[in-house]
Design a protein around this nucleic acid. Structure first.
Lengths: 107, 107
DNA sequence: ACATATTTATTAAATACTAAATATTTTGTT
DNA sequence: AACAAAATATTTAGTATTTAATAAATATGT
């Protein structure tokens, strides 16, 4: 049981393990955006973007809604943005620490 | 610049994208553990575990310290556990929602 | 027919695992 | 002290699997 949780948890986190998917999350935030708009902003080929969107929807990170022939996407759970921001902040802390080490080194 | 940040952010998140690495984080928490103890708990072959530890250390998620011939590992920034817990909680919310949908469906 | 988006197929690149080889430190023996 | 053996851990090589990108084909709605 617990093993399965780690598996699902890992699958969810794979969404965060690609730069363009992170950028997607960050530009979308709590807004709704069409596939076309996203492709424009991210500079991704339609088919490539669609694959990213599909994998994110499969993991329930995104929901979608079709209106005419345009498909709108939205982040399913806004709390995901908290996680995104927290991880980014941890990254910044780490970068600052590395920078401090380089400044203060004796070698 | 911003592009590079997404790259580093993604690299960091790759640590979370494997079940055993998540389990490692969760059993280690704020304690210090040796490679041997971790291998025992996780049921991983020494060489395989060592590869996971190396990639986590390269990304500054873990620090290490050697005493005699045993190497002790520790999570570099305790805030990482906040991120771990938050993501896991988001996962649970999502699972509960899916379960509710199945319960209440009309089909 | 056109616009928007997805799917499929192919190929390239990255990731993960096993097994074998290589350190490194401690322990035991003479 | 000197040496071999054991214990702990890492590194390297080889293979298999997964992930990502491009291009072509296929929907679907206007």
């Amino acid at each position: 049981m617990e093993d399965q949780i780690y598996g699902y948890h890992a699958e969810m986190c794979k969404v965060f393990s690609h730069p363009k998917r992170l950028e997607l999350i960050n530009i979308m935030r709590d807004k709704e955006m069409s596939a076309g708009q996203l492709g424009e902003r991210l500079g991704l080929a339609p088919s490539n973007l669609s694959q990213h969107l599909t994998m994110m929807r499969e993991r329930h990170i995104l929901t979608s809604r079709k209106e005419g022939n345009v498909v709108y996407y939205r982040i399913a759970n806004i709390r995901l943005l908290e996680a995104f921001d927290l991880l980014r902040e941890i990254l910044f802390e780490q970068i600052r620490q590395d920078a401090a080490l380089i400044q203060g080194r004796t070698s």
